[in-house]
Amino acid sequence: MPDLSSDSVRNLLADFKDPETGRSVTQLEQLHDVQAADGKVAVKLGLTSWAAILRDEVTQHCRDFLAERLPAGTDIQVEAVEHDRPAEPIGQIGLRAKNVIAVGSGKGGVGKSTVSTSIALALSKAGSKVGLMDADVYGPSVPHLLGTDDRPTAIDKRLQPVEKDGLRVMSMGFLVPKEEAVVWRGPMLHGAITQFLKDTDWGDLDYLVIDMPPGTGDIALTLSQLLPLTGAVVVCTPQEVALLDAVKAIAMFRKVKIPLLGIVENMSYFLCPDNNKRYDIFGTGGARAKAEELSVPFLGELPINIGIRQRGDDGQTAGNLTDQETAQGFEQIARQMVRNIARQHEQAPAMPSLPVL
């Protein structure tokens, strides 16, 4: 066993990985303070806002990591502190976002926009900097779900996203009257999505969540050409007819080389408030089984819930993350998704930024 000293603890932590980058926390100067004396170790571990939703488990993992390597009985304290690391520009449009996540579905009506919005809200609630882009040009529902009809303003020819419930939001629903239909061909769609990404002043983001249109249209191809997507989440319901379409969505993402972060089974069951009995209205477990069959991570299941529906209708979707009955499900899905991203980073650590000459 190594001597109990600050230097020896730092040397041990050279093998502890930052979840955001997959690189050593000592390499990235994330050990803000290390004290070791008299059988006690105290570490201040710097974590960025990207890792906010994993903060507690990363600090516990760090404690366990040290406990396995230090003398038995050592008193180990690990405190997470803020560590600033701005996003680097990515893609041909120079978007400053650490991760871009597409949320799609094979068909409409499965709750994709509700899941997209609630995942973004869960990440923001944890402390991350989050943007939400409604790419469902034909049926933009994010403005209604968030209860805002604000219009984005322009500063120096750049659109300013609407800020609502801690999110930076952009949607065609802000630009087109509710009663008007968008009747566009593919090139116009490509132009709109490009403008939303390139000409919107998103600022510095940890996550940009993109609510995709249903089906397997060409917006996924547009996105894959514009910037490197971290991955995709596919939302479906348990019944076989919905799973058939979800399989097509998975095939689409794979064809355009967008990694799959996981599947969410929405409307998985109904828990009757009168007798607390569970009813599998659309069947159950279909998405989990299909995920296993296709070697795609399963992120979790969400129930048919009157509160979720009502809050969506009332423009109060943010309440999904404050209602004890629903918050846990959405938070667990967002957390598992970020864990899967961190696992990707661990397997392929990010390269350090090169100095500008």
Score class of each variant (00 low, 15 high):
A348D: 07
A232G: 06
L244D: 00
K257Y: 09
Q30L: 13
I193F: 01
Q239Y: 05
P352S: 06
G111S: 11
L66H: 13
V183Q: 08
L294M: 09
I90N: 06
V130I: 13
S128N: 05
V256G: 03
E20T: 13
Q77K: 15
P297G: 01
L4N: 13
E325G: 01
F65T: 11
S268E: 04
P214D: 09
Q336G: 07
F174Y: 14
G203M: 06
C236S: 15
T21C: 12
E79M: 09
M188H: 03
K164Y: 09
P71D: 11
A72I: 11
K44C: 00
D134P: 08
I219S: 00
A242P: 00
A102W: 02
G147K: 08
L121Y: 09
I76N: 11
S49H: 12
Q30E: 02
T322K: 12
N276E: 11
A120E: 03
G312Y: 02
G39L: 12
P355T: 11
R23G: 13
L121R: 09
E68G: 11
Q332E: 14
D150K: 13
A342T: 05
G217Q: 06
H61G: 13
I219R: 00
A287G: 14
L321W: 01
I90S: 12
C236Y: 04
D56G: 05
G73Q: 14
R63A: 12
A220R: 02
G191E: 11
L121K: 08
L299N: 02
G91F: 11
S353I: 09
S118Y: 07
T237W: 00
G300K: 07
D323I: 06
Q27T: 13
L175Y: 12
A289W: 01
M133H: 04
A37M: 08
S118P: 05
D84H: 14
G307R: 08
R151M: 10
G319C: 04
D199N: 14
D211V: 00
V103M: 00
S171R: 05
K40P: 00
P161D: 07
D84Q: 14
T194A: 06
G312L: 02
